[in-house]
Design a binder for these strands. Structure first.
Lengths: 226, 226, 226, 226
DNA sequence: TATGAATGAGTGTTCATTCAT
DNA sequence: AATGAATGAACACTCATTCAT
């Protein structure tokens, strides 16, 4: 069971055919990982599912871990791109507008790829100790930190790092748990509203913005857009 | 790799010697699981570490998964016992007193067995799909639900199940993440205070009790004991 | 012959059945190594040939290299035992008696296990760099050194280590080469006689053709240019 | 792992560029073989090191073995050329002059390319059984035979082939062993002198160390038991 | 009750080689 | 002439589990 300490790529495909092979492997790996989990997914099975030989798989990915990291990285970076885009749109919005919007956005993203998303959430911590630098979490922290830093006068917490830690982990865990245990929470109105109360209640200065607990994100938005 | 769908026990030890064997296996399994993780821990290695033969191990536990579940159940039920005891003491306390106390209690428990605790948090979800009914989470939910149900007049959320879901997952995730990524958070004052703000801000009736963000749990307690 | 604390063993067999398994594996390995060579011999094939499962093989030998070393060690230590016995018998004999006898003995041993012997000669140097201490060669050197040291007044060389080096490597190489390329040399009279001339000519005191052993090639040249 | 039985060349390069490719492959192969050994050196790695594609490698060499043979042949034929030149210079010299000179020459060659030299010595026997005719050894035997045949009146052995066999294998083995285990022997004076004693003692006419060269070990024994 | 020898399907991975471009 | 994507048989090795003793 040899294992090199190299990253998730071994060789860059130079021909178009090779790129197609790479993609097929990545897609097959994602499908099997979601279906069977990390340990039950074998590289031989992935190659078979992708319709390529096992040798081709190892031509582009250094080992199983590297391949799985590539899957997670691809998904993670796409997620971050979309999340960042959402944040950028909300750059000028006040906290009470931005937070509900962000939560709505996160839940939408969750509904788009619930399984890959959960896979990343569950797998990255397991793969991390094996030498990987968790770029995804670092980037997410940075984005949220920038968001909060721009609203220092609107928020209560003074220790930004801790606030970021709390908000990110809370939202990630709740979205993940909802996706796994309560899919209905992802498609009703109450859950996002509760998340807004949770996050805004934590961030807001007093008097808290909870005077009239909003029933819907829409309501909240209206309220702060006046 | 046959796998029976049976629970975590195969046979009840009837002699004292047998009980000692069972315990030795459980202890060894816990140690190795914490040190090496689930997949890297083999049943043969556990038997060796416990000083018993592999045959004895399979006399008391139906398979690897069952053995690991037994480890997690033992730890989980001990945790629940202590947590429940804490809750019972706080039965008459108002929310603003009880929550800081509970959070303090949870963090204390976390500091006592950080590794086994994290193991349970990370492993139960992985083992669950394999046929296990997550008794731990069910019991925890029930305890917290009872706690909240006794304070319906003090809290805002009307959907108790969702509130339990949010609070339990939030606190579990944050304590776990702190233990793994920020051990310093487990031993400073700021972190529990922030958790109190988070939970109380979420649960409290408006106008929120956050007018003067408390610097310490002590401060919070005083405030609510008026 | 003392056993080296072996990197070639994983577990000691405790039951008789296990010892039989170990022996079967060793025997099968020797047979296949002789027939196919190191690289062409696979552990799976060895297990099959031994009539045991591959798992049993790895229960007693840590890896392919360890297994092969066990084969070579077994053969090497048997060889050394017999060689040592021969030396001991000749302890009181003068050089001119002992050397022919030893050479005769060595060639007899070679004829008994020509293939295993050649295998050891060819394989140990390849396996050595992988961390193995070449006990066989060390022991052989020591035995021969003791033999020569007891005859200091009968031999010319003053640097014993170099003399041992030369004699051991010469005889090993010639016996090996004869076994491989000229099996007829192992069974005629001329070859052992020539070996005697070679060794005695090298060891003996004058009257040698080199009455005044030259310190330099230049000296030699002068002598013969007269 | 198909393997053709063809020799070490597949196709003659016709363009200058092709010749450069061939040379680059040969050079890279030699470097990697010396560094990593035969089995650890892969053809893909050789092509990469040579800066050519794997396809080009197989355009000029039929398989891995053929390529390695080409490396060894190149080195072997260069060695033979230099050795032959040395022999020619010594054509008129008497044995006592020629032998020390030759030994000096051999050790000098050894010091020039110790690794490639050892590689050839260790590898040719392994590759030979796979169908290769060992031209190197045949040529070396012929050269030494011619050398001895010109000095029949100066030497004792009557069976020239056996004498050649003994001398060639002895010197090869001792030089190789010195290069591997005792590099200091290659650069001091004592070692070559001892080699001279060994070889001249073996070849020289009487007064031999064995006044009456024994026809049998038994004869020898009788002589010394008087 | 306890032992530990035995199993073998299955894993991740390599590498000599081919062939379409 | 040169490329490099693709192949897949084969390898060393693991480990959950069984069962004769």
């Amino acid at each position: 069971m040899p294992r090199s300490s190299s990253p998730s790529r071994r060789k860059q495909p130079r021909q178009q055919r090779a790129q197609a092979t790479c993609d097929a492997i990545l897609t097959a790996a994602a499908r099997l990982l979601v279906r069977d989990g990390y340990e039950a997914t074998s590289t031989n099975r992935i190659a078979e599912e992708a319709g390529v030989s096992i040798g081709s798989l190892y031509q582009y990915y250094p080992n199983k871990e590297g391949l799985v990291l590539a899957v997670l990285e691809q998904h993670g970076s796409r997620w971050l791109t979309e999340f960042d885009a959402g944040l950028k749109e909300l750059a000028p919005a006040p906290l009470g507008v931005a937070v509900p919007s962000i939560i709505h956005h996160i839940l939408t993203l969750k509904r788009l790829h619930p399984q890959l998303d959960s896979l990343r959430y569950a797998l990255l911590p397991v793969l991390r100790p094996l030498g990987h630098v968790d770029t995804f979490e670092q980037q997410l922290f940075r984005l949220v930190r920038v968001f909060l830093a721009a609203r220092l006068d609107e928020i209560r917490p003074r220790e930004l790092d801790m606030a970021v830690f709390i908000i990110v982990h809370t939202l990630e865990a709740l979205c993940h748990a909802a996706g796994v245990d309560r899919p209905d929470y992802l498609t009703n109105d109450a859950f996002p509203n509760e998340l807004c109360v949770l996050v805004l209640g934590y961030l807001s200065l007093s008097p808290a913005p909870l005077g009239h607990p909003p029933r819907k994100a829409a309501a909240t938005r209206r309220k702060y857009e006046q």
